[in-house]
Design a protein around this nucleic acid. Structure first.
Lengths: 204, 204
DNA sequence: CCTTTCAGTGAACATCCGTACACTGAAACT
DNA sequence: AGTTTCAGTGTACGGATGTTCACTGAAAGG
């Protein structure tokens, strides 16, 4: 019934993270102020320091959280191991559903990836390159790619990752109505990467 | 010898734009303050209003300027009409040199494309979609693509544009030493888009 | 030559900012 | 039961913020 002290602390911490994500819908981390944030959370400004030493540290915590979402996404694709020919469709479906469920995380990554807060920008860059490597090892198991070198796999993973991040950023900013067409564009672009310009059948 | 009144005004306006671009190296538009900017320019805060009604308007002027740079870039590629097989290398060379000359413009586009200032973000999105269409009509003239439909051309243009913007953003944040390798990655990824995963020769 | 225009000035304002400090009160520990 | 820990409070500060207003002085125009 009663709430333990660390439970309560954790709850406040979550409230700070969630409120920040909510405020970052309309602004960027660099322009977020401590007072504005704590007022929205419902605590006094100084209480913030019980949880984070600085706003940058809050940003880094949000990076961790956001990439946890991203990783759970590929895990979901990986676990029901779709056949190669439906892998693209399956991946896009998962992306779309995860994006709806965790829109704020995707927006955060897109907005701060090249944003004005250096440590956060660098942390996102680092996480993305880890993610790219992870994706590359997944791709290495695909039929037809077994004898590709690490370098080539990295190129391809980068290509797909770029496509994914760009589309996610697009989806995040789009009205729900046009989402389907952005999804469709992503699907077809991914297929174009697979068969190449030279193998593409126009009027598809 | 003497300076006309509008010359002087134009000079101050340029100083504001240039100083803003310089300050935006370390922060984003949303966190740029009027007083900080005008102090760096060397004018009094209120003098800013003689040139722009608001900071957002300054941002929109920077969007215009930055895309003028981008357009001059494809114009440069277009005018010496390289052969199809060397088009990728030529384009990457131009991108690299333009990026060195106008680093601040590329950084601005990358940083504010999904940044926290709505009107600027939307203006960049609009300009990018115009740019994509422009690129698509260029591609339509390429051998092998003559009978592609507008939709397919748009897909391909989007693919290349994404690749270009992502690489530019990467290059802008990179130490000069690693630039060459980012360029090389871009070259090879662009080639991979052309021949496709299925046509790619690994160990290349 | 006299008047108008207008880019830039300088003071004043109310408001927000981050942070320091001493505090409270209840949970946790002994 | 008594003591310690510590998440959250409340006040107070010096400084930065955007915007207002009346101003200056030199270029432009008559």
């Amino acid at each position: 019934m009663t709430e333990s002290r660390q439970d309560r602390k954790e709850r406040t911490r979550r409230a700070i993270l969630d409120t920040a994500l909510q405020l970052l819908e309309t602004e960027s981390l660099g322009s977020l102020s401590l007072r504005q944030l704590t007022k929205a959370v419902g605590i006094v400004p100084t209480a913030f320091y019980r949880h984070f030493a600085t706003l940058d540290e809050l940003g880094l915590a949000l990076v961790d959280e956001s990439f946890a979402t991203l990783r759970s996404m590929i895990r979901e694709v990986r676990q029901d191991a779709p056949a190669p020919e439906e892998l693209i469709d399956r991946s896009v479906d998962v992306l779309a559903s995860q994006l709806t469920a965790h829109e704020a995380h995707f927006r955060f990554i897109a907005r701060e990836r090249y944003g004005g807060v250096t440590p956060v920008r660098e942390a996102i860059g680092h996480e993305l390159s880890l993610f790219e490597r992870e994706l590359a090892t997944d791709l290495a198991r695909m039929p037809g790619l077994e004898k590709w070198g690490g370098e080539d796999l990295r190129l391809l993973a980068g290509l797909f990752l770029n496509l994914m991040v760009a589309s996610a950023a697009e989806l995040v900013g789009a009205r729900p109505g046009v989402r389907k067409s952005i999804e469709e564009t992503l699907r077809r672009q991914a297929r174009m990467v697979v068969v190449g310009v030279v193998g593409w059948q126009p009027l598809g």
